[in-house]
Write a protein that binds this DNA or RNA. Sequence first.
DNA 1: TCTACCGTGATTGTTGAACAAAAGAACCGG
DNA 2: CCGGTTCTTTTGTTCAACAATCACGGTAGA
Lengths: 215, 215
Amino acid sequence: MTTDLTGLAEETASRLRNDITGGALPPGQRLSETRLAAELGVSRNTLREVFRLLTREGLLRHEPNRGVFVAVPSMASIVDIYRVRRLIEVPALAHAWPRHEAVAQMRLAVEKARAAREIQDWRMVGSANMEFHAAIVALTDSARLQGFFAQIIAELRLAFGLLDSPERLHEPYIDRNARILDLLVEGRQDQAAAMLAGYLDESERVVLAAFARLG
Amino acid sequence: MTTDLTGLAEETASRLRNDITGGALPPGQRLSETRLAAELGVSRNTLREVFRLLTREGLLRHEPNRGVFVAVPSMASIVDIYRVRRLIEVPALAHAWPRHEAVAQMRLAVEKARAAREIQDWRMVGSANMEFHAAIVALTDSARLQGFFAQIIAELRLAFGLLDSPERLHEPYIDRNARILDLLVEGRQDQAAAMLAGYLDESERVVLAAFARLG
DNA sequence: TCTACCGTGATTGTTGAACAAAAGAACCGG
DNA sequence: CCGGTTCTTTTGTTCAACAATCACGGTAGA
């Protein structure tokens, strides 16, 4: 799971990514090149490379001659993200090999989520849930799909950061993830996939509803 | 289809992309920063931004402290790409709305391919075929999926560039694309999807076989 | 002759400064 | 109150410099 932190640019990108998905930099926030470069202790050129990376990932928005801003998630983007998730995750689970090595990652994510629930760390519960879904995609053995999905997840976390009540957002899915995992190892992939599909539908509804309440 | 050519970096990226997929820069070729910067008439910094972009797209490979190279397609990457294509394109077609606006793009691509066949321009036939598949993905109305697919396609074109006999590679699919389009507009999406699935299987076999002959 | 070591040259990684161009803000006249 | 003009800030792009790293070749020793 360790990304190549080779190079200052990627390292800085990783730091900034956390600041964004962690909510330290609110959506819509403008990022001044000179100020942020000084703040992060890197040169302007390096920071611009970082901006390119994160813009490509959908976390930043770039307006020519005006600057870069933290991306503002829209309802349209959430709908799109869930559409992609359904399209990728459900078949991934349906065609999975129950003894694939990624199953271990899924189990790990479930345990991590439960541990986080114990200490009421809902943000960590959210992370663990995301790792569970990333593990589902890993069942496909497709490096490209996994890379793409990682981006999607980062964008979704950005949207989650806007919403409050993280408990309602993540808690209900911990045990369902566990159930999905059980079904998979029992060889009942289609039931697992069906359950996941319902999961995604409901999650999308909840997120959209919470989003609508913000105006 | 017009990319924002805002900014010198993206413009240069576009130029370099064509050089790569067009075969002017062979896979494995090392790209010296200073030399290429002078050749393209941009500064080293700008070129490095371009490198980031194309590396992200999978067209270049970056080795720390050694430089960037034109990516060398492997059999593993081809298998992966076709896996992704099946996963995305087949459901996209199966659930498509026969009167979607992207259908017009599909028709356009078919006509372009036939026109190119007339003048024996197999490279253009290849482009048109790719546009046909991009149009299939456009049926999903998902901006993220379309962006992802565009990358996949660029990588695949890179692999095609390695192979000779472009006629055998592209010609057989022109009429099949037309047939798929017909089935879709007649509302027989599942038959269209099934045909596409067979199409992809066969295309993968052909490409892998041609690839294996290269050693 | 072969191999291990070391130095040299070239390339990348990163920085800082500079300047043109564009956008936004302040100002001024009507 | 409004429209236009100047001023200031920020971005887009380039250039020059230097440290770190790598590739190559030569040398010493077995």
